[in-house]
Write a protein that binds this DNA or RNA. Structure first.
Lengths: 137, 137
DNA sequence: CAGAATCCCGTAAGATACTG
DNA sequence: CAGTATCTTACGGGATTCTG
């Protein structure tokens, strides 16, 4: 998805937003943090298909983007909590918008008897986003 | 980006939308097609930093997702036009939402004197999304 | 003009092990 | 518990060439 790294050229600020929320696990992370703060281990459980590494990386990016705040409690055992910043919370309507369209897309997909599948068939086998291997959550 | 391939698990339809519009060039393509239909060569000119290959691939995916329609005029030289389907046009508010937040993000970024940069410094050198190499449009 | 076919490469991301 | 460190692999994407 990923969306890869984008910059703000092409005169379209859409890409900027996508570069922030478009990470592979970020939508899900944000989705969970939207409701309440979570600590690291909770997130790993909420995203069983990712690795700690990925989770850390994505959280660090979100932190660097000013979306989430990271609170370290100097305890033993350590405790770290992540929560949305006020600015991060301004993403809510965007996420909701995305979510709604996603649902309408699913409805649309469910209703048609897959007539669109065979349009202008390519030579390479068309992989729909029905993933088999579970590298995705 | 990319966004990569996502499926609809994790109970979050946001990913579905991102899997549709999250392609590396899709936002820009959609942005241009939002206004009017374009033919292939026009799009290559509008996206100077991509290749025909990428453009074709992205367009094919959008087509398979029912977002764009592909009209082939059996002429010589050939002529192919792409336009949004009615369903594709329902993406407009989503794109606008994304665009607006992207702008507010840029404003936010511009206003702070980069104090967020050094939070919880990692060992690996933090690469911000300030791309140097121009594989991005 | 609108692609398809090939070749090639960098990096995102998975798996695993280790640590304060 | 909350991460790093390291290795490895897959595949997204670039460049180039060929064709109806």
């Amino acid at each position: 998805m990923r969306p890869k790294r984008l910059d703000s050229k092409s005169g379209c600020a859409v890409e900027v937003t996508l570069s922030v929320i478009g990470g592979l696990w970020k939508p899900v992370i944000l989705f969970h943090l939207m409701h309440e703060k979570k600590r690291f281990m909770e997130l790993t459980r909420l995203l069983p298909n990712t690795t700690q590494r990925m989770l850390t990386l994505q959280l660090r990016e979100l932190e660097a983007d000013g979306i989430v705040a990271r609170h370290v409690y100097p305890q033993v055992p350590p405790k770290v909590e992540y929560e949305l910043t006020p600015f991060g919370k301004t993403l809510a309507p965007v996420l909701i918008s995305l979510r709604q369209w996603g649902e309408s897309y699913q409805a649309q997909r469910a209703s048609d008897i897959a007539p669109i599948q065979e349009v202008s068939k390519p030579t390479t086998t068309r992989r729909r986003r029905t993933n088999t291997a579970g590298h995705v959550a």
